[in-house]
């Protein structure tokens, strides 16, 4: 646990991508969850990242590795569920898929504004840890 406190200081001068800060927050959340349910070594964490969350999964994994290296939870896996946004055109009454690389919220068929649900997830879903306790 001595590993936790200096994290902010450790990365203070190297956080030049926001994925690094997010990786730190995910680690904090994991540690909090382990503490709430006993104690032990973190084995894996599963998170949801939405396609509109403006978070790059590979950079997030890179940040995660940097956060856990040389600490008590070194080697813990970060598993990412990438979530698509659900887009619907109220005028056509149909689901409309987002074309690759475009964030437009206008129906490609009729031009009406799309209703967008989800896709902005940045959630911790599951934390797995090893413990001596029953």
């Amino acid at each position: 646990m001595g590993h936790l406190k200096p994290l902010w200081l450790r990365f203070r001068y190297t956080i030049s991508m926001h994925e690094m800060g997010i990786a730190i927050e995910i680690y904090r959340t994991c540690r909090e969850v382990v503490r709430e349910h006993g104690q032990g070594r973190l084995q894996s964490v599963r998170i949801a990242v939405g396609e509109l969350a403006a978070v790059e999964p590979d950079l997030l994994k890179f940040g995660w590795e940097a956060v856990i290296v040389d600490g008590p939870d070194e080697g813990a896996e970060l598993e990412i569920d990438f979530c698509r946004a659900d887009q619907r055109c109220p005028s056509c009454g149909e689901a409309k898929e987002r074309s690759e690389g475009s964030w437009f919220r206008i129906c490609p068929d009729c031009g009406a504004p799309l209703e967008v649900r989800g896709g902005d997830e940045l959630d911790v879903l599951e934390v797995t840890f090893e413990t001596d306790e029953d």
């Binding site: 997010i22 382990v34 032990g40 959630d123 911790v124 879903l125 599951e126 934390v127 413990t131 029953d134």
Partner: peptide, 14 residues
């Protein structure tokens, strides 16, 4: 050594 799985849904930036 036992393994515990905790299912939550908590915002990463809570």
């Amino acid at each position: 050594m036992t393994k515990k799985l905790v299912t939550i849904r908590r915002k990463a930036l809570a």
